[in-house]
């Protein structure tokens, strides 16, 4: 298969970028989107041109490292998959494909298609954990957790932290990401002691870092490779309101 690519090239964080045209020739239909870029890159190196920088690691959809906007959609067409799990047979021979980095003010471009998403780590550091000193844990079966609750916590915990939700949101909101962690930990009995302080600290950090607010576009849910439900955002809002009533002093 042959494709025309329009790829975002940008030398570094503080210089202007632009779309550059490339031809992707003789691409096997069974190649993944990232393997197509690998082939284009090998061709570039042979012509002594700098390869297109893009992030990837596990290439099986779980590490969250790959982060492309393909034809205007975070992770490209198709439901519930990362950029690395997109295969070229989904496109038509001769298609023109636009490839960009995740766009958000909180994810500055590092080079070409790579961004700095460490703001996501900062929000986890602000409270996305349960304080459990190594060695001090009680017997694992001492606190039963109903299957329904455990399964719901698992659904929230499945977030791979790629940031597609932020890239897809017109407000660059990180509400889906934050709500997934607040819900995962807040649903479990082990997460109760810090439930109030966690939601307050994480939301405060999210605002401080410059992520926008949720105005119910549901774009996040539509692109999420882990199919995290936007209903977790409602849970986040409820938890935040609950925290406000329980710990008014914290919000000052």
């Amino acid at each position: 298969m042959n494709f025309k690519l329009k790829v975002w090239r940008q030398k570094g964080p503080n210089v202007a970028g632009q779309f550059v045209d490339y031809e992707a020739r003789d691409i096997p239909a069974d190649a993944s989107f990232l393997e197509m870029l690998d082939i284009v890159n090998e061709g570039l190196i042979k012509r002594n041109e700098d390869q297109i920088a893009f992030d990837s690691d596990c290439r099986e959809g779980i590490c969250g490292m790959c982060s492309l906007v393909i034809n205007g959609i975070a992770h490209g067409p198709g439901k519930a998959k990362t950029s690395c799990q997109l295969y070229m047979r989904r496109f038509k021979d001769g298609d023109t494909i636009w490839v960009e980095p995740f766009r958000a003010i909180t994810f500055p471009v590092v080079r070409d298609l790579c961004t700095n998403r460490s703001a996501l780590d900062r929000m986890i550091e602000a409270g996305g954990y349960i304080t459990a000193r190594t060695g001090s844990a009680p017997e694992a079966n001492s606190i039963p957790i109903g299957k329904v609750v455990a399964d719901l916590a698992m659904e929230a915990a499945a977030c791979i932290g790629c940031g597609a939700c932020v890239a897809a949101c017109p407000n660059s909101s990180a509400m889906l990401f934050v709500s997934a962690k607040v819900s995962h930990l807040g649903l479990l009995p082990q997460g109760q002691p810090e439930r109030t302080s966690r939601v307050v600290s994480m939301v405060r950090k999210m605002d401080e870092l410059g992520f926008g607010n949720c105005t119910n576009h549901y774009e996040c849910e539509a692109v999420c490779p882990s199919e995290i439900s936007a209903s977790f955002i409602s849970r986040l809002n409820r938890d935040y309101a609950r925290a406000a009533t329980r710990q008014a002093a914290v919000l000052v």
Partner: peptide
């Protein structure tokens, strides 16, 4: 024990 205390959502029975 440690992982459960940290909130790892292991599969559970009803």
């Amino acid at each position: 024990d440690q992982c459960v205390a940290q909130g790892v959502p292991f599969a559970r029975e009803y």
